[in-house]
């Protein structure tokens, strides 16, 4: 079903923000340099592909230690945490997740220098049918 009751959205979003706050540990996250690539509309809520990308190659000087991925409309917002290293080459990785309904997916990256970046993206989970 596409349309969620408001209370559960609020609850999921609240839990997600608690996880973000915990991950940031008091730091603030900047925008840009981190992207989340997902379908705008999910084909199948049980397997929604996602790709996380931090701009620039991973080097010993600069790499994303951890990228936390959260889905704020699921009963539990946690999806995964990716860990890159200088051997990763790029800072890009993909997986597939479950989304219970239309919601925001959040990624927060912690770089090896202690800085943070964040991005939020909407994925629509629809009932389907109809077309041209």
């Amino acid at each position: 079903a596409a349309i969620a009751g408001l209370p559960s959205i609020a609850l999921g979003a609240e839990k997600a923000e608690m996880r973000v706050a915990e991950f940031l540990g008091g730091a603030t996250a900047s925008e840009g340099g981190l992207s989340l690539e997902m379908p705008e509309i999910a084909e199948n809520g049980n397997t929604v592909p996602l790709t996380v990308r931090v701009d620039g190659e991973a080097t010993a000087d600069r790499y994303a230690e951890s990228v936390l991925i959260l889905a704020d409309g699921n009963p539990e917002p946690g999806v995964a945490t990716f860990h890159f290293t200088p051997l990763s080459g790029t800072q890009e990785a993909s997986t597939r997740m479950r989304l219970a309904k239309t919601q925001n997916v959040i990624a927060v990256a912690k770089m090896n220098d202690g800085s943070f970046m964040r991005t939020d993206n909407l994925v629509k989970v629809t009932i389907g049918g109809c077309g041209g």
């Binding site: 079903a1 629509k124 009932i127």
Partner: peptide, 11 residues
């Protein structure tokens, strides 16, 4: 029924 109409309307 409302959910269906809203869903299609957004599409």
């Amino acid at each position: 029924l409302k959910d269906i109409l809203e869903d299609v309307a957004d599409n």
